[in-house]
Design a protein around this nucleic acid. Structure first.
Lengths: 193, 193
DNA sequence: TCCACCCTTCCAAGCGCTTGCTAGGGAGGC
DNA sequence: GCCTCCCTAGCAAGCGCTTGGAAGGGTGGA
């Protein structure tokens, strides 16, 4: 018999999958319950609301991400190394939370509309400032270009990076490490030969 | 008194705005009707269903995009010029259809789940092949790098580009042309100094 | 060891409300 | 009179969630 912790995790996992595929609004509690193998009323034994399920998924992802970013910035000081670290941390977090990124990308409005959870809002701010700090630091140090505003560079990097969760499927010969390396090549060196 | 064409356009415009902000599933026909200034039952005089509204918005955008892409590829043969052309065409189309891009990015699953409209599916294929053609042609011509697979380069470019619709707000001194130019700088030359 | 009690988890039925949409009829313009 | 556009009332289906009760397992005391 599953322990309480296990069932709760299964709900989060299945819900994350459905939310990512269909969007939060279009996913019913009945669908989530069916995917878990229980009836929808039973979900409310574990979570107070559908919103709370969403929050739990995204909060877990965001906390993991912030922890990894903090570790990168604490251990690297060279802008290029920091950038590589942030990319690797992002991709590793995305791999660890296979659907949270998709939910966050697609349903950020949903979270904001409900004023989100404090942890998510705070985490998002931390994530953004990590990147801005690295890009600005790199430009100041003469490592990164400064002719394109950081407020333009950052969203281009951000969106390319986070939407890898939507299309990337690792294979035996081309995994997350290879993706991170190629991402850095494309953005740091460009596609020109 | 508004002519039928005008009212229909107003519905599409208002619906596009709401769909982009909230997602298709989370936008009710009552909200759309209210934004237009009529009651929800009246929408069905102009459109057979809510889905048809979505389709009309996305189809119009996609047709415009394909037309612009075809024009670029017909008039440029140098890979770099083609890439610049595709970028400029994408950004121009995005500016012309302020919300369709957001809908397409967020609700592509929705469209696919309903087998979408033939025009959208066909258009999406055309769009993708235009990029692949340019990237592969450029690599073969020694203009673009060939050490990173095109199937990785393309989605990075694509996502950075299309999500500009989500964050970019033109100002008097930094408009769509400047964005296109900076996008090209970032992706073609990279951010390294 | 056995039994009563408690807790956890779930089922089942249903609530109040919302959704996309229908169909009948009215109003205004030509 | 006819046509276009809209209002109105309401339908059927479905939504997130509540509530009462059942079932199973664990624990402690006699």
């Amino acid at each position: 018999m599953a322990t309480p912790v296990d069932r709760r995790d299964v709900i989060l996992e299945r819900a994350a999958d459905l939310f990512a595929k269909q969007g939060v609004a279009a996913t019913t509690v009945r669908e989530i319950a069916e995917a878990v193998g229980i009836l929808s009323g039973s979900l409310y034994h574990h979570f107070a609301s559908k919103d709370e399920i969403v929050d739990a998924i995204v909060t877990s992802f965001m906390e993991d991400l912030v922890t990894r970013y903090d570790a990168v910035l604490a251990s690297e000081s060279d802008p290029h190394a920091q950038l590589v670290g942030l990319v690797r941390a992002s991709i590793a977090t995305s791999a660890e939370h296979p659907h949270a990124t998709e939910i966050y990308q697609n349903d950020a409005r949903y979270l904001q509309a409900d004023d989100g959870s404090a942890a998510v809002v705070k985490g998002a701010r931390t994530v953004r400032s990590a990147w801005i700090q690295v890009l600005e630091g790199g430009a100041a140090a003469g490592v990164f270009r400064d002719d394109v505003p950081v407020k333009v560079v950052y969203p281009l990097l951000r969106d390319g990076l986070w939407l890898t969760a939507r299309w990337f499927v690792p294979t035996r010969t081309y995994g997350y490490d290879e993706l991170a390396a190629d991402y850095v090549k494309v953005f740091v060196d460009g596609i020109a030969r």
